[in-house]
């Protein structure tokens, strides 16, 4: 009975599916953007050592990256999940962090009147963004919304290479036949290849405190490294525990295997 019913149900499903499979398909309209769009360039970063899974951040590079963020990106992009105190992880001293925080104002309440006001930020505060809300952000950016950068490296496919490629992808020539709408810029690494953000990095735009030459490529690498840290502040610790765990479990597996062999010695199976 089950088999008979099953046979009937099976035939119905199979016929319905095959009937669908033999239907003619609508002609696919080729998407011109797909032909122009590029997959991120594969870049080697100093913190992704052997096999791309080991390695630690270069503190000087992280600080340069923070400088690029602070002097360039932060004009439009927030970094709302990173607190000033977190900057100690990239090599700033507690005193430097306090000074960095003090330079920014954050919303507060006047303790005497109860009126909304501002106060200098403390190390425990999150880094304040450039806009108070989305409406203000869009109003200032021709209705485009600059995304928060705290998670950008994790929130894009092949994120690290994507951020670097996007930042350095503005000098590509516009392919013939492709019209860039007014107010947008051509960048083949962006999903729609027309991006609202204008080219953010130019050679020698900033002066690095450590004397490194600020080429577009250098700044893009530095800020990408910084954003990788911002997205995965646990990265170094994670890899460190990972190496210890893998070594421990490899030895334990080996011992467990020997135990298994010992227990099963002379047991036919």
């Amino acid at each position: 009975m089950v088999r008979l019913f099953g046979l009937g149900a099976g035939l119905v499903f199979v016929i319905a599916l095959l009937w669908g499979a033999v239907q003619p398909r609508e002609a696919v309209v080729p998407d011109p953007v797909k032909a122009i769009h590029l997959h991120p360039e594969q870049v080697k970063f100093s913190h992704d050592g052997a096999m791309g899974v080991f390695g630690t951040f270069d503190r000087a590079q992280l600080q340069r990256g923070y400088q690029v963020y602070k002097e360039v990106c932060s004009a439009c992009h927030g970094l709302e999940r990173v607190a000033f105190r977190n900057l100690q992880d990239i090599g700033f001293s507690a005193e430097e962090v306090r000074a960095l925080a003090r330079a920014k104002e954050v919303p507060s309440i006047d303790p005497r009147t109860g009126e909304p006001s501002t106060r200098p930020a403390l190390p425990a505060d999150r880094i304040p963004g450039p806009f108070i809300n989305e409406v203000q952000a869009r109003a200032a950016n021709n209705n485009a919304l600059p995304p928060d950068l705290s998670l950008i490296v994790k929130a894009r496919h092949d994120g690290q290479n994507y951020v670097y490629s996007l930042l350095t992808g503005y000098d590509r020539p516009v392919p013939a036949g492709h019209d860039v709408p007014p107010g947008l810029n051509f960048n083949p690494y962006f999903h729609s290849v027309n991006i609202a953000m204008a080219r953010p990095l130019q050679d020698d735009q900033i002066t690095y405190a450590d004397g490194t030459k600020a080429t577009t490529d250098q700044m893009a690498r530095d800020v990408t490294t910084f954003l990788r840290w911002a997205a995965e502040p646990e990265l170094e610790k994670r890899r460190q525990i990972g190496v210890a765990s893998v070594i421990f479990l490899t030895i334990l597996s080996f011992l467990a295997f020997l135990t298994y062999r010992k227990v099963w010695a002379n047991i036919p199976h």
Binding site: S245, V246, T259, Y260
Partner: peptide, 20 residues
Amino acid sequence: AKDFFTLCLYLLIFAAIVFF
């Protein structure tokens, strides 16, 4: 004994993904 051995292998692969 046999399950403990495969459990160690399982945790090894699990740790490799979780941490790397």
